[in-house]
Amino acid sequence: MTPQLFSPFEIRGVTLRNRVVVSPMWQYAGIDGAPTATHTVHLGRLAEGGPGLTIVEGTTVDRRGRGTVGDLGLWQDDLVPAHARLVDVIRAGGSVPGIQLIHAGRKGRRNPPWTPADQPAPDPADWPVLAPSAIPVPIPGAAMPEVMSVRDIDETVRSWAQAARRARDAGYDVIDVQAAHGYLLHTFLSPLTNRRTDAYGGSAHNRARLLIEVVDAIRAEWPSDKALFVRLSCVDVGWGMDRTVELVHELRRHAVDVIDCTSGGLTGRPAPEAPAVGYGYQVPYAQQVRARTGSPTMAVGMIVHARQAEEVVARGHADLVALGRELLHNPNWPLDAARKLGVTDPYAAAPPRTAHWLRKRDESFPQLAPSTMGDLDVAAVD
């Protein structure tokens, strides 16, 4: 019997060959918004490793929404051809191409995370840091954000719509809207960071208004046979699962297909009672959203082992599992997991030039234990 992790998953007109997803991972290597050879290598090797869906890193919808100078962007039409080449690379690897769209909000205008602490951030003249309210990120030296006017908000909604149109033209099949981890849309949702008194602040309904407008604007440009995900911090300081469930019900009414379930981002740990980081520590959020709303979900967070991922899907805790850093450690994780879980042809998802030689190796040496399955008894080999 085929493991559930390696069963297909259909969303609208998009069919994923399995439930393994490459989570969007920033490379900080873009040049004025355009992908470079770094992105081609990064995404190509991951797509060839056998995942059902490969999501390109958070791609900025507006120059003013950049997190760093190396962010990818879709803020103008001449960036579309470079993204179309990334789409071709992912498809050539056998995976479905997706993209995460983002506006960094108050987490904008920063250096890559490995930059020495004494190196200055980009000049404030380069681009403004925008947010619903003048509340900076709670870290030393963080920029004080400018409060967005209603005109800024209207322009932002249009920028999400135009970025979706460009993603469509580039050939992506899935959009993942980043509304978590303390970025712009998340800060509008939370009463901790949204102190507005106009139509975009105050009540929970008003604080969700921008996200709903963004989703509707994207759907106006995004074909009905393509999938739309929204990433939510399901729990955070001042925000619990009951509020997430209410929001997901609303998002479902606005043609959102999958909820990408994570947590925290406004201040660090999501809440004092949140579980410590460990294997699958965020899976319960995806499980609760799925059970309480009927929405398909994607689980993320320290999902690293094949049987662990299989249990998440087989037990109905989530429909998809997304891996990030584990795929940096082992880009062929899906092929490896397929072998460990007893898939009849574990290399079927690999390109033929790879699958042929891996099959041949198994046929010639059936007792072979690949390196990821433990060391051989060296004495026996000697």
Rank of each mutant, 00 (worst) to 15 (best):
D236E: 15
V235I: 15
V214C: 04
M144N: 12
A161Q: 11
A143G: 06
R195C: 09
D242A: 15
V230S: 05
R231K: 12
P223Y: 08
Q162D: 13
D176H: 13
D123M: 07
W127H: 07
P120I: 14
A164N: 11
A180L: 06
C234M: 07
I212M: 10
S203Q: 11
P136I: 06
I175L: 15
T156C: 14
H186K: 10
D242M: 01
I175D: 11
R158I: 10
C234F: 01
Y172K: 09
V177N: 03
R168C: 13
R195K: 14
D154M: 07
A125T: 05
P136R: 03
P223M: 13
T115K: 12
V214T: 13
P124W: 02
F188N: 02
L232D: 09
D169W: 02
P138N: 10
E146D: 12
P124L: 01
Y183R: 01
E221R: 15
A164H: 14
D236A: 04
V248P: 12
V177H: 01
A217M: 06
S203W: 09
D198W: 12
V248C: 08
R166Y: 11
P136M: 05
A179W: 03
P138M: 02
R165N: 07
D236S: 07
V215L: 03
Y183Q: 02
L184I: 07
A227P: 04
S133K: 09
A170P: 13
L210D: 06
T187G: 10
E221H: 13
D198R: 12
W160I: 08
D118E: 15
V177R: 01
P140W: 06
L185P: 06
F188I: 04
D242I: 09
P223D: 04
Y183K: 02
G141F: 11
M241H: 00
E213A: 15
Y200Q: 06
L211K: 07
E250G: 02
W222H: 04
G202F: 03
V248L: 11
V215I: 14
G238T: 05
L130N: 05
E155Y: 09
R207Y: 06
G201C: 02
S159L: 03
R196C: 03
S159K: 05
